[in-house]
């Protein structure tokens, strides 16, 4: 049975997460308690809350980067509902490869690999031809204002803003049904920020489900369809 387009593609229920620091005698730092959230295609949910409230932790739990202590994270993947909390690594990796894109604040630079190949890699992994992947990578780098003279250089030497845009291009080269954005415009100037906003909106309108942290209120207003308050466990009633 094909998935119902109005049904959520990401469903978080009763998610909890603490960090236990063994170096400090097993001190437990609760960050998320009983978080529930559902996101449908075409929605862009902006996570808001004060600094340290756990927005970034939530996003990383959704991506499988942080391990959920309790609760459930279900995503629609290959026409099926897949549980990400406690999933085997290969399941999480397959979900990341096809379904779940993530734009972090920082690009994890791979030594010696040119920017164009960094961007093209996720598409190649999904079976795009070399020519096709490069064409899309060039298009995205162009839209994001990376000058062609930088395309064949490894991004290690790029400025923060340039690295961030390479990172965005890399996450947008595949049409992931679900996108997680952690401050995608943090180190960008006005002009480039507008370009990124436009790309995000295009994806959203094409049916991508988006969860993001947008520090910049103008950006948030431009992309978000809904706000989700993230409240630290101690502040809850």
């Amino acid at each position: 049975m094909p998935p119902d387009p109005t049904q959520p593609v990401l469903r978080v229920s009763h998610l909890s997460k603490s960090f236990v620091v063994h170096a400090q005698g097993g001190l437990a730092l609760p960050v998320l308690r009983d978080v529930s959230l559902a996101v449908s295609p075409g929605e862009c949910v902006a996570l808001v809350g004060r600094s340290g409230a756990g927005k970034s932790t939530l996003l990383r739990c959704l991506y499988g980067n942080y391990r959920a202590d309790a609760g459930s994270i279900r995503v629609r993947h290959r026409n099926d509902n897949v549980e990400l909390a406690g999933a085997e690594p290969r399941v999480t990796l397959d979900v990341r490869r096809r379904t779940l894109g993530f734009v972090s604040q920082f690009l994890r630079v791979i030594p010696r690999v040119p920017a164009i190949d960094v961007v093209a890699e996720p598409a190649l992994r999904l079976g795009a031809t070399e020519t096709e992947a490069r064409r899309r990578a060039e298009f995205l780098l162009g839209v994001l204002g990376i000058p062609p003279r930088l395309w064949l250089l490894p991004p290690a030497t790029f400025s923060g803003g340039e690295q961030q845009r390479v990172n965005i291009a890399r996450s947008l080269i595949v049409d992931y049904p679900i996108l997680l954005l952690d401050e995608p415009t943090a180190s960008l100037d006005e002009g480039n920020r507008a370009g990124v906003v436009e790309l995000i909106n295009q994806r959203r309108d094409a049916g991508t489900a988006i969860v993001g942290i947008f520090h910049d209120a103008a950006v948030r207003d431009a992309v978000a369809t809904r706000i989700h308050d993230v409240v630290p466990p101690g502040a809850q009633p």
């Binding site: 620091v21 063994h22 499988g64 980067n65």
Partner: peptide, 21 residues
Amino acid sequence: DGLTDQVLDDPQHAYTQMLVA
């Protein structure tokens, strides 16, 4: 044991936390 980025970014065991730190 687990996904590489998860073990390194969110280590659970005391020994792993020590290694990462």
